[in-house]
């Protein structure tokens, strides 16, 4: 049974972390229906796990754990990220067309890079982009700090190499 008294507190906390959940779903699910399913899964999972949160770690650390575990180890069939980053499938509708185009180009660049990564690399990149310390990354991922540094360097190198190859391919074709 969920403690009724904590429901409002829980909703308030989740509301504060909305951007994080939104970005995480975008990171792991290319299509909108998949994203919505994942978001629902994560919020329900967080709600079910909330009674086990004893405040031993930061709320955000706990939230990352549950959300990433749901995204990575869930038995979920997914569609691939396909086509251009249209306003319809990315639900980023802006009035200013120039602004939108510029943003779309940036988001496309971001997600093109993310598409090249594995599930665990995505988690690492997300934590890195969120400016998490290696210590906090260790708490969330359960990987020791030294290995994390090695992995981060590999990811950076991989991104450099893959985007270089992709750009080279585009120029050739």
């Amino acid at each position: 049974m969920q403690p009724i008294v904590s429901k409002e507190e829980f909703v308030r906390l989740i509301d504060q972390h909305r951007p994080l959940l939104y970005k995480l779903c975008n990171l792991y699910c290319p299509s909108r229906p998949d994203r919505e399913d994942l978001l629902q899964d994560i919020v329900i999972q967080l709600w079910k796990s909330y009674p086990n949160f004893r405040g031993e770690s930061k709320f955000s650390t706990w939230l990352y754990r549950i959300a990433l575990n749901t995204a990575i180890s869930g038995l979920r069939k997914q569609k691939k990220r396909t086509g251009a980053f249209t306003p319809e499938n990315q639900h980023w509708q802006q009035q200013d067309i120039d602004y939108r185009q510029e943003k779309e180009a940036q988001f496309k660049q971001l997600y093109s890079a993310i598409d090249l990564l594995t599930a665990i690399e995505r988690a690492l990149v997300m934590l890195y982009l969120e400016d998490k310390s290696y210590q906090e990354m260790e708490e969330i991922l359960g990987i020791n700090e030294n290995s994390l540094r090695v992995k981060m360097n590999r990811i950076k190198e991989k991104l450099r190499k893959l985007t270089k190859e992709a750009n080279h391919g585009i120029r050739e074709s």
Partner: peptide
């Protein structure tokens, strides 16, 4: 591509997170 250069784009994603309609939708 440098990962550092993606940080700026990543931060800008927060400006657009309007898919969750606040506390009512969480409930």
């Amino acid at each position: 591509m440098e990962l550092e250069s993606l940080k700026y784009v990543w931060k800008r994603l927060e400006e657009d997170n309007d898919t969750m309609g606040g506390e009512t939708q969480i409930l």
